[in-house]
């Protein structure tokens, strides 16, 4: 069975899925380097013609927005 709680990105580093936040027709996915807790990465999980892809964000503005959403959700929970 595929373990989708972790993913190896194109840099060949394994990341753990820390959170997912739904936004319109995709999810922002927040990943932490399995060996370096300070190495945080944000990607988008999208469905394209019945296939699921993990893709990079459009620009810095989107990164800021994704991080704001993450903090909005998790900063108060913690």
């Amino acid at each position: 069975m595929v373990d989708n709680s972790r993913v190896v990105l194109e840099d060949n580093i394994e990341y753990l899925v820390v959170d997912k936040i739904k936004e319109k027709d995709f999810y922002y996915v927040y990943l932490i380097n399995n060996r370096d807790d300070a190495d945080l990465v944000v990607r988008k999980e999208k469905l394209e013609k019945d296939e699921r892809f993990l893709v990079g964000l459009d620009d810095e503005e989107e990164l800021e927005k994704a991080l704001d959403l993450f903090l909005e959700k998790n900063d108060k929970e913690n």
């Binding site: 373990d3 709680s5 892809f53 993450f70 998790n74």
Partner: peptide, 25 residues
Amino acid sequence: SKRQKINGELYRGKKVTKMKLKKAV
């Protein structure tokens, strides 16, 4: 280059403890 196919939806696993989440925050 930041585009890869994945097999199914991603989810948070048990290895991500509250401490790890706090660190990410």
